[in-house]
Design a protein around this nucleic acid. Structure first.
Lengths: 118, 118
DNA sequence: TTGCGATACCTCGAACCACGAGGTACGATA
DNA sequence: TATCGTACCTCGTGGTTCGAGGTATCGCAA
C-alpha cells in the first residue's frame, strides 16, 4: 500500500477518450495506438497494451468502432475506425473532460465559485 | 455490468487533490468539504460522503493532515488542516494534474507531438 | 411531543478500471 | 538459431469511486 510512484492515477476514462480521438483522425491498429499515445504526449501518458486492447474490444462491441483486418509486410493488423456512434461518444467524453478540467483548474487557481469574470 | 451512465468517471485521484487544495486555503470539516466541492464547481464535480471521509482518514494516516475536534452550536465537528507533508503532496498532485491536462488538451486539439511553438 | 429535515459523523459491499505479467506467433537481423 | 521487434490477446490484482445504509443531535413545525 506504499508508494505507487509511477503514475498517480488521475487516469480514469482517459484511455477511451484518447483512443477515440486518435482514431477519428486516422485509422489505426492497437499496437500503433500504444506508441502514438506515448509519443504524442511526450511520454506524459503511457498506456500499456493491457489497457488498449480491452478498450478497443469494448468500443467495438458497443458499435463505436469498426475493424478490418489487413496484412502489411506479411504482418496481420486490425485497423479500427470510428462509427457515427463512436463520434458521438467522443464528443460527449470530450465535453465532459473539458468541463472537468475547467472546474479543477478553477479550484487550483484558488477560485471561489461564481466569482469574477462574466 | 449494464449502464453506468451517471458520471463517466475520469475522476481518479481528483477527490484527494481537491480536498487537499481546499484545506490548504482554510481549515474545514468533512461535511463542509462535500458541499464546498459541489458549490465551487457549480456541481460539475460532486463527491459523496462515502468518498470524502475515507480520503480524509487516509490522508491523516499518512501524516498529510491533522485534525482537531471542535464543538459548534452543540455540534461536534472534526476540522482538518494540511501538514507540511500534505502541502508537499498537494504540490506533487497539482503538478501531475497540470501535466496530464496539458497533454490531453494537446491531443484533443489535434496536435502532432513535438510540433509547433518553442 | 412527535416527527421530520438538516447537520455531522461513519462503514460496507459492489462495480469499475488501469496495470502488469504472461502467453502466442511471425518476420528480420545478427 | 537465437533474439528482438512487431502484433495480437487474456487474466488476476489492486486501488478508488460510489451509493446505500447506519447512528446521533439539533431546530422547527404540526
Amino acid at each position: 500500500m506504499v508508494a505507487r510512484e509511477t503514475n498517480p492515477n488521475f487516469m480514469n476514462g482517459v484511455p477511451e477518450l484518447l483512443i477515440l480521438r486518435l482514431l477519428q483522425q486516422e485509422e489505426m491498429y492497437g499496437y500503433e495506438i500504444v506508441q502514438a499515445i506515448r509519443s504524442r504526449t511526450d511520454a506524459v501518458i503511457a498506456v500499456g497494451e493491457g489497457v488498449v486492447y480491452p478498450v478497443l474490444h469494448g468500443l467495438e462491441r458497443d458499435g463505436a468502432l469498426t475493424s478490418r483486418r489487413k496484412t502489411v509486410n506479411g504482418r496481420s493488423r486490425i485497423y479500427y475506425s470510428v462509427t457515427p456512434v463512436g463520434s458521438h461518444r467522443l464528443a460527449d467524453l470530450s465535453q465532459a473532460w473539458t468541463n472537468l478540467a475547467a472546474a479543477i483548474q478553477t479550484m487550483l487557481a484558488g477560485g471561489q465559485h461564481g466569482e469574477a469574470l462574466q
